[in-house]
Design a protein around this nucleic acid. Structure first.
Length: 334
DNA sequence: AACATTTGCAACCGCTTCCAT
DNA sequence: TATGGAAGCGGTTGCAAATGT
């Protein structure tokens, strides 16, 4: 039993909008607003269109201050940077580009920008990037939710994309410091004054923590899970995507250590109410941490990897063994 | 000039999320 | 807490225009 259709498909007009329809819709919304109900709007406006179609037409074409035409270099840069960090979250990307719609950006990316980027790397640089193996190396955490298509290989170094965020808006926050200053799995005090990035844009990205005294940064994918579903599984968001996990308090993380020039990815339990900290599936990468941030080279590598991993998967969704699903270049355990 | 292919983009489809009840 | 309906979102499709042969 599928869901009921949003409108009577047989009695609604489809296809391109006529100028008359446009002016009817525009006139109605300018006079009455949407009323918060797109389904009822077409009838009130005298249009034989589906409410969803009206909404799309208004948002993507008719609403004021819509910008059409060429994208600037600055817009290109913003799109690339955000795509590298959050993937195809077009609505979020669009929110950073005034006047641009998610549809516009998506079309621009798929038809122009992606190709432009794929041809942008100079040949010498392209040769320096080792082809990404289909599967992670054996040293890579076998049960980690961070795996094949997110990690990048560059010679013997493996790393995952880090968010390119500023340290400008940070709020104090207590986070575990074990395994962050020490590679051993022994726990340590959590009193270090880390600061959590509060930028709403970054809230869908790995959370960045910063320790001002030691001038070190740490990125954590996901958040402490709170279990509420009846089947005992948990949901949390990492990179804006949902991760379900069976064990309470487990989260996926990447610790970057600027002093050691190393980083670590893995999973851990930092739920202090349930037995403190425990880290599993650790993997220490040898890519200097600072190299993972902000450089355009880095973004291009990530983007290239994302593009190729997306195009090689089945519409971005393909099964990789039991309980694992590739989604837009990442796969998770659940 | 005619036809084939490619490109660009508007619109649609269906799934997920949100929110009121 | 569960449920249903509407909005939001991202992927895909269809088609006209542009370009190539």
């Amino acid at each position: 039993m599928g869901r009921a259709p949003c409108c009577d498909k047989a009695n609604v007009k489809r296809g391109p909008w006529s100028p008359e329809e446009d002016s009817k819709l525009k006139e109605y919304i300018e006079k009455h607003g949407t009323g918060g109900n797109w389904i009822a709007l077409p009838q009130k406006a005298g249009l034989k269109r589906c409410g969803k179609s009206c909404r799309l037409r208004w948002l993507n074409y008719l609403r004021p201050n819509i910008k059409h035409g060429e994208f600037s270099d600055e817009e290109d840069r913003i799109i690339c940077s955000l795509y590298a960090n959050i993937g195809s979250r077009w609505s979020i990307i669009a929110a950073q580009l005034p006047g641009r719609t998610d549809n516009d950006i998506k079309n621009y990316w798929n038809t122009k920008l992606k190709r432009k980027l794929m041809g942008l790397l100079p040949a010498s640089h392209q040769r320096s990037i080792a082809p990404y193996p289909q599967t992670p190396p054996s040293s890579f955490p076998s049960h980690s939710s961070l795996s094949s298509s997110i990690y990048c290989s560059n010679n013997s170094h493996y790393y995952i994309p880090a968010p390119t965020v500023s340290l400008a808006c940070l709020e104090p926050m207590a986070v575990p410091s074990s395994n962050y200053t020490n590679t051993s799995s022994t726990t340590s005090s959590t009193s270090l004054p880390f600061y959590q990035n509060q930028d709403p844009l970054v809230s869908v990205s790995p959370i960045q923590y910063y320790h001002p005294t030691t001038d070190t940064s740490m990125f954590v994918f996901g958040s402490e899970a709170s279990c509420s579903s009846s089947d005992g599984s948990c949901s949390q968001v990492s990179l804006g995507r949902e991760i379900k996990q069976e064990e309470m308090g487990f989260q996926n993380f990447m610790f970057g250590d600027q002093h050691m020039n190393k980083f670590m990815v893995g999973q851990g339990n930092i739920n202090h109410d349930h037995g403190g900290e425990e880290y599993v599936n650790q993997y220490w990468g040898e890519k200097p941490f600072f190299e993972m941030q902000t450089a355009l080279d880095y973004d291009l590598e990530v983007i290239k990897n994302l593009i190729s991993s997306n195009s090689s998967s089945n519409n971005g969704y393909s099964s990789i063994g039991e309980n694992k699903t590739v989604e837009k270049g990442l796969y998770y355990n659940y």
